[in-house]
Amino acid sequence: MAVTALDDATDIGASRPVTIREIVRRHPTVVIGSGLLLALVLMAIFAPYLGTVDPQALSPIRRLRGPSEQYWFGTDMLGRDVYSRVVYGARISLVVGLSVALLSSAIGLAIGLVSGFNRPVDAVVMRIMDGMMSIPAVLLAIALMALTKASIENVIFAITIAEVPRVSRLVRGVVLSLREQPFVEAARATGTRSWRIVVRHILPNTLAPLIVQGTYICAAAIITEAILSFLGAGTPPNIPSWGNIMAEGRSLFQVAAYIILFPGMFLSITVLAVNLVGDGLRDALDPRLARRM
């Protein structure tokens, strides 16, 4: 049965081959988004080979030089090459965005599944989540950063905690509506064990909204990291991150605007790329939500 169904599906697919051109025409934003994102990821990985110098190398004689052929994005107040710092900075943003998205999705999924299936736990856990959600995410992350010492791990940890309530609320909502669906009732009526219902029937159906939410969390986490670093409560200053570079350019922005503009531009483009991919995934995976938005 299953095999024939699969064959039918492939037949339908094969009858109208989808060309790359068609994909580009039908989903231009997704293609642009993933293209940009791929370029940024490659830039982060191959940072040492992109004409960069040591992003931490000081050169006080050459400080505050404007953008030129030698220093594409100029130099900062300590004579460090802004171009190299911005290219290396992509690493921090992407690592933080991806880690927070994965971690908070995993933790939120676990909390949401348990909470959606266990009423007493649900009552307690959701009150805690409501409380945490009433603290604005950036403030929550700032407060957690104030407790620990500045490091990338702690930044990821702090932003993850701030994002978990949203994911668990989403998953819980999906679980609650799935529980009432006929196919879950049928599974229960035939005597399927609870954990099996969760793994086989509930979990696969939470994945689509979870992936979409994950990309938006990735975008939010990249912004939050930059905000934390910009305010001096994020990535330690000895690591070039876009937020840090902008924080350093803050006092000089009237004389050396480029120190702030270049990292700001890259930051916005990265977030835009992630958001475009997210919108595309939403349209593809969750057509009902797509129509509503």
Binding site: A219, F253, A257, G264, V271, L272
Partner: peptide, 22 residues
């Protein structure tokens, strides 16, 4: 709307300061 979501407030803020104020 997509752009508005993607430009963090401090980037928008500085862009406005540069263009409209400076």
């Amino acid at each position: 709307a997509v752009l508005g979501f993607s430009f963090p407030v401090f980037v928008t803020g500085y862009l406005m300061i540069f263009s409209l104020s400076i």
